[in-house]
Write a protein that binds this DNA or RNA. Sequence first.
DNA 1: ATGGTATATTCATACGTGCGTATACGCGAA
DNA 2: TTCGCGTATACGCACGTATGAATATACCAT
Lengths: 110, 110
Amino acid sequence: MAQKVMRPELLDLVADRFKALSDRARLSLLQELRGGSCTVNELVEATGMGQANVSRHLAILFNHGLVSRERDGVYVRYELADADVLKLCELVCGRLERELAERKQVISGR
Amino acid sequence: MAQKVMRPELLDLVADRFKALSDRARLSLLQELRGGSCTVNELVEATGMGQANVSRHLAILFNHGLVSRERDGVYVRYELADADVLKLCELVCGRLERELAERKQVISGR
DNA sequence: ATGGTATATTCATACGTGCGTATACGCGAA
DNA sequence: TTCGCGTATACGCACGTATGAATATACCAT
């Protein structure tokens, strides 16, 4: 139970943060980064996405503070900003897995 | 640290779940529901949104299992499905508040 | 069944978003 | 500086989504 009322402006910020996470491409980038920092090209190869696309999505994640970046000569290395990002994903995953399990029960139970 | 690899299909489900939460209108509905179950019209009055809009967004939240509903005569009462929804929002809010605090420090510190 | 109220859905429209292609930028080597 | 490579951005297009107005549906009372 945090604060009772949330200011509308904060509501927009929260919505934007969720929006940043509401894309398959960005989630797969975050997942790849769980294994450690990556360059853009490494992520291009790992995900099969186009280079421009990867760069764009990384910029979005960066602007939302979900990843950090650091120049390494010609390369730019991206990495997860912190563990909160994964906590969010795991909360959602946990729910989904429970729901899928329930659905299986219903199907096999009839 | 849950599973190492996430199947692409699950990734889409997660993205969809986040997408359901990535809208100001839906978040304000969830916030109103923190005070207990509400009818559609109560939510219309509380949020100032149009009736059709409220009904649509509630349907989306319902389809994602974020709220439950129950007929009460002519009315339909909606309520939060469980506490996980709020946990998600609070995780994001916590981050945002920390970020805003840091930003204030930077501004006032120069 | 009829009327009235609460809720859901349809339709048209405006806006946002993701993508590929092409191009610009940044950095190091020669 | 000029070249090559890695990364970022601009443009155009196709698709998705949120919205209000109008309409349909569900329920209760009479």
